[in-house]
Design a protein around this nucleic acid. Structure first.
Length: 651
RNA sequence: GGCCCCGUAGCUCAGUUGGAUAGAGCGACGGUUUCCUAAACCGUAGGCCACAGGUUCGAAUCCUGUCGGGGUCGCCA
């Protein structure tokens, strides 16, 4: 379905061309210049700067000339603003919006998209930040489906790699054999085992004192230099440097912004020395444990039956736990696979790279011969002890997926910090001669801050959902609107909806900081806000006996109604754009606009009785308004379902 | 240091290919419940769009530089 607004834009462009005596061939270019302006400037607008230049005529003159021929238009300086006929607008939008396929199209018909999303690591917990890939990927999938694509959603588990060795070897030390199938227990074990083998962390601590001393020396020198600067500019520069160093040192020491970072330094250095000493003595043990984990993984790669059996068991447990959370969020996959699917073809994959574009040994590791940008690290296919790395498995997976699904587009919904990995993956596939590499895209998203593992502040996704549902329950139990029989279902819808919608509200590329009060916010522009408008629409429809089959939509003359209809009209375009840009937030924002206009409209009816939907003694008007309310209900439900958020009928 | 992303109201963020007086939500202040759901609505205050140049009839948007923040940079994924 073409966007309903498009039709009016096209028409406007045609009228403008006609009014200036331009040939039809100019219409597409003019159409490209038509905008939806701010509300006070009408519904459609064009500025004549470009055409002015093209025709060598003053824009003001063109605007004035066009206004004479284009219906419902006013020239304002170099702009021409037009108003869409109210009745035509209503009768174009409302019937379309009342249909369940509102916003759908056939743009992607006959094409297949493979979406790699969620993809948690087995053995590690499903933490809150996993919501990003999961929810964005699922929404991008639904968006593609709504645009006619065949969608293959793959949960590509990180089920192959050293981290699994950590879990398995760690279980021998900390595991309770009775709890082998307890996912939460496995996570505890993994966290401990990971700490035990934290070679990098220990090395950093060992280097701590010397780095600290270097920093202190640098700072002392900087302070000296500050006094001997030749001119003002130089002084400023050196002051900056000092400030930077001070900030760094304060950061290391965990001091407040106004304290002198050199104060009480000796003690701190002593602490660091002691810490380094402890790290030095702990290192051999950590290295041993790290090596143990590596060996376990090597055994897996060599298909050791005992190791494989253990791996299989832990894997099943993890997947069952993930599935429970996915079910709560209404997330489905076409396939749950993992890196382990490609163990059999890894050798062949490496061989294939060796042929084209070629490989070489470097410090014992196998790297691909790929043109590197300056400063770019090489692509490692195998470690020095012969185990594969994830890029090798990704190469195998990409080839396999193309063979299986013949995709026209392959998306990887993975955090921004892996941008380099995907850049290299796609480039390498291209260098291997795979044409489909050009159809692959990394759909990157920003980080969730404020829950770093180092501070031990891992927040589980499930835990956040629980808290949110609990809050919804508290509010709902105080209300007498909700049928007790549907209470559980409703609070689940609202609680989870708030969390999911909250994540999809921001542009996917922006980072955000986890804050309980924000994740659990139900006020303002949130999921519950949209759900609330939807529930009110349902309630009014019920009271009015449903939407009538026919109505005279020309009766919808209120400004609130016009604003609302325009918000509905923007929905299909938002869905289309969201699909093209892999940006669910476009839909989120379009829905908020509809929900807001709806809330204003309904509330206006409380202040002024003649604006009520259910009008006394005017069945024709009531019929028209009920159809509009039904269009709202339907659009909000449709939009929320695209985002994976439930739309309760009452709340 | 190299490469990538970012800097918009007190806070969190929109502003899609350059267009009119830069918009929301939260918070602040002031109103609205005999009114179809107050998880709401209406209003007020709040901005050198980091800074400096440049391109353009026109720049929050494009280019260059500076400052500030984040990410990433060989055997983890």
């Amino acid at each position: 379905m073409a966007s309903p607004l498009d039709k009016f834009k096209q028409e406007f462009a045609k009228q403008v061309a006609g009014s200036l005596g331009l040939p039809d061939s100019e219409i597409p270019s003019i159409y490209g210049q038509v905008r939806v302006p701010e509300r006070e400037h009408g519904d459609l607008s064009i500025s004549f700067f470009q055409l002015g230049k093209q025709l060598s005529r003053p824009p003001l003159e063109l605007a004035a000339q066009a206004a004479k021929k284009v219906p419902n238009s006013t020239p304002v300086g170099p702009h021409l603003n037009a108003t869409i006929d109210r009745t035509r607008l209503a009768s174009e939008i409302i019937p379309a919006a009342r249909n369940a396929d509102f916003g759908d199209s056939q743009d992607g018909e006959g094409r297949t998209v493979v979406i790699d999303f969620s993809s948690p690591n087995i053995a590690k917990p499903l933490a809150f930040h996993h919501i990003r890939s999961t929810v964005i990927g699922a929404a991008v999938g639904r968006l593609h489906r709504s645009q006619g694509w065949r969608v293959v959603g793959i949960n590509y588990l990180g089920d192959w790699g050293k981290q699994f060795g950590l879990l398995a070897t760690g279980f021998r030390r900390y595991g309770d054999p009775a709890k082998r199938a307890d996912a939460k227990h496995l996570i505890e074990v993994y966290v401990k085992a990971n700490q035990d083998a934290d070679v990098e962390g220990l090395r950093a601590k060992m280097n701590g004192p010397s780095e600290l001393r270097a920093l202190v020396t640098e700072l002392e020198t900087a302070r000296q230099l500050e006094k001997t600067a030749a001119d003002d500019k130089e002084t400023k520069k050196r002051e900056k440097k000092t400030k930077q160093l001070e900030k760094k040192l304060r950061g290391l020491r965990g001091l407040t912004d106004d304290s002198d970072p050199l104060e009480g330094l000796l003690e701190f250095i002593e602490e660091k020395d002691a810490e380094a000493e402890r790290a030095t003595s702990a290192l051999p043990a950590a290295e041993a444990k790290d090596q143990e984990a590596r060996l376990f993984f090597k055994k897996l790669e060599e298909k050791d039956p005992v190791a494989l059996a253990e791996w299989r068991e832990f894997r099943e447990t993890s997947i069952a736990e993930f599935q429970r959370v996915y079910r709560r969020m209404g997330i489905e996959f076409t396939a749950i696979e993992g890196e382990s699917f490609y163990t059999d073809v890894l050798e062949a994959t490496v061989a294939r790279v060796s042929e084209k574009p070629g490989t070489e040994r470097d410090q014992g590791a196998l790297i691909a011969k790929l043109e590197q940008k300056p400063g770019e690290p090489p692509v490692l296919l195998q470690t020095k002890d012969g185990t594969t790395l994830y890029i090798t498995r990704d190469i195998a997976a990409a080839i396999d997926r193309h063979e299986r699904f013949q995709f026209n587009r392959a998306l990887y919904v993975v955090a921004q910090d892996q941008a380099l990995h995907f850049q290299q993956l796609f480039r390498l596939l291209g260098a291997m001669g795979f044409d489909f590499a050009k159809d692959m895209q990394h759909v990157a998203f920003g980080r969730v801050h404020g829950m770093s593992t180092r501070r031990g502040s891992v927040i589980f996704l499930d835990e956040v959902l629980d808290e949110s549902v609990a809050k919804a329950r508290e509010i709902c139990e105080a209300s007498d609107r909700i049928d007790r029989a549907h209470l559980d279902e409703t609070v689940e819808a609202i609680g989870i909806g708030a969390v999911v919608f909250g994540d999809l509200k921001n542009l996917r590329t922006s980072d955000y900081t986890f804050k309980w009060e924000e994740v659990l916010n139900f006020e303002g522009f949130t999921g519950p806000y949209v759900q609330f408008s939807h529930a009110r629409a349902c309630s009014i429809l019920e009271k009015g006996g449903g939407a009538p089959g026919s109505a005279d939509l020309s009766l919808l003359a209120l400004p609130e109604e016009r604003d609302l209809i325009l918000a509905l009209a923007a929905f299909p375009g938002a869905v289309k754009d969201a699909c093209e840009a892999f940006e669910p937030s476009y839909v989120t924002r379009a829905l908020l606009e509809v929900a807001q206009r709806t809330a204003s409209y309904f509330t206006a009816g409380n202040r002024e009785r003649e604006k009520r939907i259910l009008v006394d003694g005017n069945p024709a008007l009531q019929a028209a308004r009920l159809q509009l309310v039904d269009a709202v209900r339907c659009t909000l439900a449709k939009g929320l379902s695209l985002l994976g958020v439930a739309a309760p009928k009452a709340m």
